[in-house]
Computed example of a mutant assay.
Amino acid sequence: MDEDADGCNTRQEVLLAEAVESPTVNGRCTITGGVWHSYYDDTDVPNARGLDIDHLVPLAEAWDSGASGWSALERQRYANDLGNARALVAVSARENRSKADQDPREWRPTDPGALCRYIEEWTVVKSRWGLSADPGEAAALTTLADGCHDARITYTPAR
């Protein structure tokens, strides 16, 4: 979707926001060139086609954590959340596909240095949207967060 009617859809907006080397944008938000950093695997990606836009908290996980009770409009807002840079992230397609719909109990970024950021962002997205954590997920988050001494959980509620 193109929420701000500037010709760029959500994927393109995330790509433009997260580029570490700015791409060229032509016509109807056609993106060429540029470089992105996939923090999950600490990899620079020189082609937007090698990236997926990851719902940090996957859509299926959101559904199971409370989104099933939302209206279609709320679910659309969640799926296209550009109001917090942590909700949607440009990552290598390989990492995103290995993650699929798993939570931090089942999947963690390949780069060990990304773990605290990932746990912080997971917690922010869940909190921002008022989503629950099942007991296994909560236990994993608590255990993993023990090693994250500088994490700061700040957010503006989305709902």
Rank of each mutant, 00 (worst) to 15 (best):
S132E: 04
Y40I: 07
R11P: 09
R11C: 02
Y155C: 08
E137Q: 07
P135W: 04
D42M: 05
P58S: 08
G130W: 07
E74Q: 14
K126S: 05
Y40H: 10
P112F: 03
T123L: 00
P112C: 02
E137C: 05
G27Y: 05
R108P: 11
E3S: 11
P109H: 06
P157Q: 09
G69F: 00
H149K: 10
R117I: 01
L88S: 05
T156V: 13
D41G: 12
R28N: 13
C8L: 12
P58Q: 02
E95I: 12
R105E: 15
P23C: 08
N84M: 06
L144A: 10
A145G: 10
Y155I: 04
L88I: 01
G130F: 07
I119N: 03
W129K: 02
E121Y: 10
A90I: 06
L115P: 00
S38G: 14
D42P: 08
H149V: 11
Q12H: 09
D103L: 06
A85Y: 08
L88R: 06
L82P: 04
V25M: 10
Y39E: 09
A114Y: 06
T43M: 11
D44A: 12
P157G: 05
A138E: 06
A138M: 03
R49Y: 09
G130H: 08
A19F: 01
T143L: 09
S98E: 15
L131H: 07
A151R: 12
E137A: 04
A100Y: 14
P46T: 15
C29G: 09
M1C: 11
D4R: 12
L59F: 06
G113Y: 05
R152K: 12
Y78F: 15
Q12I: 00
K126V: 11
T24C: 00
G7D: 14
V35I: 08
S127Q: 12
R94H: 12
A67M: 05
T123G: 00
R75N: 07
L73W: 00
I31S: 03
V91F: 04
L73S: 13
G130N: 07
G33D: 07
V20Q: 09
T123A: 01
S98P: 04
